[in-house]
Design a binder for these strands. Structure first.
Lengths: 141, 141
DNA sequence: GGGCTTATCGCAATAAGCCGCAATAGTGGT
DNA sequence: ACCACTATTGCGGCTTATTGCGATAAGCCC
């Protein structure tokens, strides 16, 4: 299997736990927390410790299989890396999350690079604010 | 004193602890964590509890005197609000932080508002990436 | 298949932050 | 100056996200 080989090639090992983390991420449609994944796995395999999930996410990230980003709380969110790169909008009021085509962020990235020499990773942190729905609700009140 | 009055007008009180938090923030040149502030205050006033610092930061934020933002770790960073609103660049490699004129972020904010109905708070989360210095170092190696 | 190295695991501990509660202390009124 | 009212404090304990550490087991060599 392809992924096993890449793991071993990097001096890592394929374990039951690692496979379960990968599968859980593949099933998850949205950006999930390490705890989400741990909970899902532990439903069937209670002996697997949450810390193992954390460390496996890191390991898989180093190999480029998964990515993390930060929303408005202090919890890290994870998703598969093979889905296309995208930005994130998160509503501060209702918590709704929305993906954003990366091209929309390009002009800012370019200016930061040209004017500040800063190579920004604009997909890494979610942009927080108030979504359209919540905006309307509060203006109507 | 102006700030005392505004506190009282909102049904709050000016206390020694609150004043110390404000002063610590005024002296801090950068974006500091709640723990930084607690540690500094407790160096001279060990009886002041960290939880008091947390609560005062929240209270002062509600009154608009301080603001928090999120850098690349899971720790909240605080700074005075009366300094002009600004974005943040944080280097993933060396941790250097840099402030950013808010105007630079305006075009993106406008597009998000116009095209997505999303009122973004672009100053709230730091933009992470690789700063000019680290960029040069790694390309030279 | 058995032994050896060391990546990985599960458990216990830590770090950041929050909450309930009884005691304390600003404030406004007298 | 004193009182009553209640915001705020310090304390202890709790929660959530993550990390240190000794035990376990994956993968390589024979």
């Amino acid at each position: 299997m392809e992924i096993d080989e890449r793991l071993r090639a990097s001096g890592r090992r394929m374990t039951v736990q690692r496979r379960l983390v990968l599968e859980a991420l593949q099933r998850a449609r949205h950006h999930v927390t390490a705890d989400d994944i741990a909970t899902r796995i532990r439903a069937r395999h209670p002996q697997i410790d949450p810390s193992t999930v954390y460390r496996n996410l890191e390991a898989l990230e180093e190999l480029g299989y998964v990515t993390h980003s930060h929303f408005d709380d202090r919890v890290t969110r994870w998703h598969r890396a093979d889905a296309q790169r995208h930005g994130h909008l998160v509503c501060r009021s209702c918590g709704a999350e929305q993906e954003l085509p990366i091209e929309l962020l390009e002009p800012l990235a370019r200016r930061l690079r040209d004017e500040h020499g800063f190579r920004a990773d604009l997909a890494h942190s979610a942009i927080v604010g108030i979504c359209k729905v919540c905006s309307n609700v509060s203006s109507v009140q």
